[in-house]
Write a protein that binds this DNA or RNA. Sequence first.
DNA 1: GTCTATACCTGGATAGAC
DNA 2: GTCTATCCAGGTATAGAC
Lengths: 195, 195
Amino acid sequence: MARTAGSHSDITGPRVLKAALQLFARHGFAAVSMRQIAAQVGVQAGALYNYIPDKQTLLFDLMRTHMEELLSAWQDEAGADTAPARLERFTRFHIRYHLERPDEVFVSYMELRNLTPDNFSVIEALRRRYEDQLEAILRDGAQSGDFDVPDPKVATMAVIAMVTGVTTWYRTAGRLTVDEVQEIYWQMVRKGVSA
Amino acid sequence: MARTAGSHSDITGPRVLKAALQLFARHGFAAVSMRQIAAQVGVQAGALYNYIPDKQTLLFDLMRTHMEELLSAWQDEAGADTAPARLERFTRFHIRYHLERPDEVFVSYMELRNLTPDNFSVIEALRRRYEDQLEAILRDGAQSGDFDVPDPKVATMAVIAMVTGVTTWYRTAGRLTVDEVQEIYWQMVRKGVSA
DNA sequence: GTCTATACCTGGATAGAC
DNA sequence: GTCTATCCAGGTATAGAC
């Protein structure tokens, strides 16, 4: 396909998303200007609007994409098995997946307030679908007697908060590998819900 | 004391802090304007500067006050005892204290990015001092054989994240009392670090 | 597809009257 | 202590040339 010399739409589009993601994660959505994003991409502010309709939609698309990919990745990994085996798989998956995407996680978690009500509802529904995956595991294990979980809803929130928390302190250059972190957290989760 | 008719400095000052706290918690520091704060207080924007030097200092003061009061409240409650007893006290204290101050917690947690580097260092040091309280308990319990905690630093972050997470979902109007939530979380913490 | 230029608005903060 | 008025920097988004 012949293209105009200055045409880079196939490459600039993703770069806009990536720059926005990094800047939103670092400074927060409201604190980042379109001019900053443009500077990071290496274009002028006006050029951004060839790729995104507005700043709000940019945030929404980043968050929706992240949540949909998270759900899809878990669907690929989840399988039929005993509740304890599924819980271990969920715990390790969640930690690995989130540590591999610190910016996406941070933005999707911190910028809910900056979504319009309609966009917020969409993201919330996706988040809820993900949490439901864990809740189902805990319910199954409680019913089978493998777990002692008096309130599966609360236990779900507790486990999710705990494992998501790794993203606030883990650094690749630190003393622990991802495998070691997964193991430590899995032992705490396992014991925490044990019968 | 005789006062000018329009003088309300003794009451307006705290109202500025409270309005700012609420708005920052709801919409985020960067998304809230001084004019919004002034409107909530019922004054004009210029009048705010009788009480605060600038917006950054306003945020910093809110966060520092919260962290200092948190530390001080825990000092009042902490006491010499076995590690398991101190861990239970810490868990219940943390949940109760945080649920009683959702706005302070949210702001102190979400707005770290919007502090200047100097202010950030101060808040981080206070946060670290609080986390050290829990870490000391976990180390003591590991040494005494009461806990099985292979990595006290990681366990500290895991427990803190878990119990702080209640603030994201707990609603006073919901089906659970604070006491019930404390009990559920305490059982998970207790089992999670158990030998 | 990107640029320059700009419209239009809202931001934080200050000055000076009352 | 609060108001009105205002400065000026910076925000999002658009228009039209290239």
